[in-house]
């Protein structure tokens, strides 16, 4: 059986990590499922495990004029009860799993798991979030899209730990978040859509669009957003076929036990269409 460590501080966690190259265990709501064996047996961890879910330094949320910083081990429940957490992220988090899992599952865990169906990812992409990675007194900051490499893989080094998520403040007045799951609640996503816009009078001054679960990683295109940004809402309406066709090239879903490629692609575009047509108005 593997060694398990329960450090008493972040520093201790970093120290153990640089020593051991271990599996970081935050809430464990995904790890315990991925590594489960039959009932009564200890889950199958092949490397040492460091429990970090209890570390206070990783559970803090701080707000400044520029940004909000969220500790990686903040549970979903903690995010929901903090007033500075962006509404769109709360909307997304409130639809993750069930109350018991939201009490233990963490935002850092959701990010590092890097599942194509990870629910917070499209929202974090859309909000231009970055992550802070720590090792031995050194830190680096990466935009979320640079952090996630592919399904289940990130650029996290063996001796690195995700400590904080930075979300710059931004202002939007149009929101559309839609998770299409296998049932109404407590479900994995077939598709998720995040649409944000700032509309002043008839001009769309800012826009963010992200799709989850329909490609190996989140689909967000700053180029297409730039083409929409600054345009008049009527002009955007005319651009819709063109915008859909751009995204259609980026959305590359799979068929699996929860849905199929055609559905994922068509519905993603339907949701985008709906955002541009109905929610932006």
């Amino acid at each position: 059986m593997v060694d398990t460590f329960k450090p008493q501080s972040l520093q201790e966690a970093v120290d153990v990590l640089s020593d051991k190259g271990a599996i970081l265990f935050a809430g464990g709501t995904d790890l315990m499922v991925q590594r489960r064996r039959r009932g009564g047996l200890i889950p199958d961890f092949d490397r040492p495990v460091i429990l970090i879910g209890h570390l206070k330094e990783l559970k803090e949320i701080s707000n400044s004029t520029r940004e909000i910083r969220i500790g990686s081990c903040c549970t979903y429940t903690a995010l929901l009860s903090h007033k500075a957490v962006p509404e769109i992220l709360k909307t997304c988090v409130s639809q993750i799993a069930s109350p018991g899992i939201r009490n233990r599952g963490t935002i850092g865990g959701n990010i590092c798991n890097a599942s194509p169906a990870g629910d917070t990812l499209p929202v974090l992409y859309a909000l231009d979030a970055s992550v802070i990675l720590a090792r031995d007194n050194k830190e680096r900051v990466l935009p979320i899209e640079k952090f996630i490499k592919g399904p289940g893989t990130t650029v996290l080094e063996a001796d690195e730990l995700l400590t904080r998520i930075i979300i710059p403040h931004s202002s939007f007045n149009k929101f559309f978040y839609k998770k299409v799951g296998t049932r109404a609640y407590n479900a994995l996503s077939k598709i998720s859509f995040t649409g944000l816009a700032l509309k002043k009078l008839r001009a769309v001054e800012d826009v963010r669009i992200a799709f989850g679960a329909v490609s190996p990683t989140v689909v967000r295109s700053k180029d297409i957003e730039a083409q929409i940004r600054g345009k008049d809402i009527d002009a955007i309406q005319k651009m819709i076929p063109e915008i859909l066709s751009h995204y259609s090239k980026l959305i590359d879903p799979i068929s699996d036990q929860r849905s199929n490629r055609r559905y994922r692609k068509t519905v993603s575009l339907n949701l985008l269409n709906s955002f541009l047509k109905n929610y932006m108005l």
Partner: peptide, 22 residues
């Protein structure tokens, strides 16, 4: 669904029954 004799949905994460909100 069964694909080549194997069930595609083999857990309660993938085989979905109604929850209280459905």
């Amino acid at each position: 669904e069964s694909r080549e004799g194997g069930l595609m949905q083999r857990s309660m994460t993938d085989y979905i029954i109604a929850s209280s909100v459905d």
